[in-house]
Amino acid sequence: MTIEEERVLLLVEDDAAFARTLGRSFERRGYKVLLAENVDEASGLLVDHTPGYAVVDLKLKGNSSGLACVQMLHQHDPEMLIVVLTGFASINTAVEAIKLGACQYLAKPSNTDDIEAAFGHVAGATEIEVSSRSTSIKTLEWEHIHAVLAETDFNISETARRLGMHRRTLARKLEKQRIK
Rank of each mutant, 00 (worst) to 15 (best):
V122R: 15
N111A: 01
I179R: 14
L140D: 05
N92S: 15
A42M: 08
I156P: 06
R29D: 08
P51C: 04
S43I: 07
I137A: 09
K173W: 01
T112K: 08
S131F: 00
L22F: 02
E4V: 00
I145D: 05
S110W: 00
N92H: 13
L174N: 05
E127A: 09
D40Y: 10
T126Y: 13
T135N: 07
V148G: 03
Y53D: 10
H146L: 06
N155K: 10
D40V: 11
K176G: 05
E143N: 13
E151A: 14
L67G: 08
T50A: 02
R20A: 11
T139G: 05
F119E: 08
F154R: 06
F119Y: 07
S157W: 08
E4G: 10
V95P: 12
L170V: 03
T93D: 04
G87V: 01
R161Q: 13
K59N: 02
V95R: 13
V47H: 07
I137H: 07
R162N: 12
K180N: 14
E37Y: 03
T126V: 09
R20M: 13
T139Q: 14
S136G: 04
E13S: 03
A107P: 11
L170F: 03
I115W: 05
V55Q: 00
A68D: 06
L10R: 06
R167G: 06
A117R: 07
I115L: 03
Q75C: 14
I145L: 06
V148M: 09
K99S: 03
S136T: 05
G66L: 11
L45W: 13
E175F: 00
C69F: 03
L22M: 08
L174V: 10
I145A: 04
V55G: 02
K173S: 02
G87Y: 08
N63S: 10
N92E: 09
D153L: 05
I98L: 14
E79Y: 04
H74P: 09
V84I: 12
E6T: 10
V148I: 12
E41A: 14
L106W: 04
G62S: 12
L58A: 12
Q75E: 13
R29Q: 05
L73T: 10
A150C: 04
S131R: 15
R162L: 08
R178Q: 14
R29V: 09
E175G: 00
L35R: 05
